[in-house]
């Protein structure tokens, strides 16, 4: 099971994480049961002017910057593909 963490820190929330929260409830069928979606406190990735990359998410610890629903789904599918080609 992959672990998708959506940063809920203020920077990420303002920059678009609020719109990513719906992913938890509305995972596409092919990903259901294969991905665990959780929110997390500020990961600190936005500090020192790096806020241009927000919202940040991590998939099994690997950081994805400027995350959108599309880019998250693509990254999740690529990982599952790698694991079970």
């Amino acid at each position: 099971m992959l672990h998708l963490q959506i940063c809920q820190g203020t920077t990420c929330y303002v920059m678009g994480a609020a719109q990513l929260a719906s992913l938890a409830a509305q995972l596409p069928e092919d990903l259901r049961g294969r991905v665990r979606v959780t929110g997390c406190r500020c990961l600190g990735l936005c500090r020192d002017g790096a806020f241009g990359g927000a919202p940040y998410v991590t998939i099994d610890g690997e950081v994805l910057a400027a995350a959108t629903i599309d880019s998250i789904l693509a990254a999740l599918r690529a990982r599952l593909q790698e694991a079970h080609p």
Binding site: Q8, G9, T10, V14, C46, F51
Partner: peptide, 17 residues
Amino acid sequence: AEELGAMLIAADIDVDA
């Protein structure tokens, strides 16, 4: 609200902290 959000981002303030 967006402008306040931008000010918090700029000042590196995480509301939860």
